[in-house]
Design a protein around this nucleic acid. Sequence first.
DNA 1: TTTATTAATGAACATCATGTTGATTAGCGA
DNA 2: TCGCTAATCAACATGATGTTCATTAATAAA
Lengths: 202, 202
Amino acid sequence: MSEKMDRRQARTKQLLNKALMELIEEKGTDGVTVTDIATRADINRGTFYLHYRDVPDMLEQIKEEVFVNIEKCILQLDINEVIKNANTGKPYPISVMIFEEIARHADFLKVMFGPKGDLSYAIRFRNFMATHIFNKLSYLQPAEDNFLIPRDYLIAYMSSANFGMLMHWLESGMKQTPYQMGLIMTQIALHGPIASAGLKSN
Amino acid sequence: MSEKMDRRQARTKQLLNKALMELIEEKGTDGVTVTDIATRADINRGTFYLHYRDVPDMLEQIKEEVFVNIEKCILQLDINEVIKNANTGKPYPISVMIFEEIARHADFLKVMFGPKGDLSYAIRFRNFMATHIFNKLSYLQPAEDNFLIPRDYLIAYMSSANFGMLMHWLESGMKQTPYQMGLIMTQIALHGPIASAGLKSN
DNA sequence: TTTATTAATGAACATCATGTTGATTAGCGA
DNA sequence: TCGCTAATCAACATGATGTTCATTAATAAA
């Protein structure tokens, strides 16, 4: 990743990357051809193959890089700490950090989680959130069998809900700051959706 | 749709349909070629073009047909009625009916909402649920400005959450009956996710 | 600055799926 | 039975693919 690279390689990689971004924004994940990318980047088509095997391979590498960055942030978050510290009107700092990292890759994620996006990528994020955030909720820990509804459905519910808000943030133009998004998530994790409506803490 | 069709047309359409289903299950929404479908269906490739313009066109027609069927069911549901009648231990009948309709198209939807699926289709369903179910929740109606968190995020939360449970149902092998799924949805709509954990109404 | 290295170019090529056409065969409905 | 039309088959031009090789140009290191 960070190994020193020949300037020429770095340059073409960057041009190819930029071209791909523009094209999937226009035509969606599929339907983008090597010829498209090379033409747009003003790079010889053959040069593409010196860097990537084909278009899916290129996309896969970018997806991986973005995922790893966000993964690092999410792994630092402990949902039970979020709830404990939520009495203050402030969001848990790490949740803000997560939204900042997402904002950093907003252009890419907006496409990947939009209508022309990649469902496998969305599911990967959702499942990661399910495993590393909501699976650890303390009030889901004890009596596995005593739930009103099955535990896995509760986790599917909460991870999908939060991922859905993330999607909504991206697709509605990111009008909230990462700080505000952290606050929203904290509130709804604390009170649930019902109590979070109509009750203004002033 | 139901106009009487030449037996030959009906036969080929059915064979093409079956072949497409098998192929997107194997290779995903994209990557399926006309040649693939024709070969699998044991139909002349040229014949495909007598029925559909190309593969995306064929997929679009199937998507539309399935969506319309489920749409009809969802439009009959009034979320506020669901909550009113939820004191009984029974699910609201129409919500059961919706899951029955989904089960009827399970093979198709399992693929479309799975990792190789179609994000635009998933978003279409989610948005439809947002508009025609959760947008009508009575406790979201009155004071637009007095919410702890923005109204559109609440709706994104709830529609995504419920759609996520639907996805989970499909991908985990539909171990629950439509009746049980109706019950789960009703409970969680009533109490929210937090209260739905650990509290068994016995 | 010079030099060896290597990235990028440009052209050519075989391959494969596409979408279309026209002639022919086979099946259907009346 | 007969007219209609769906399905077949073969052929074709087109365009993207992935690969190769000789050539040019940029780079890093001496």
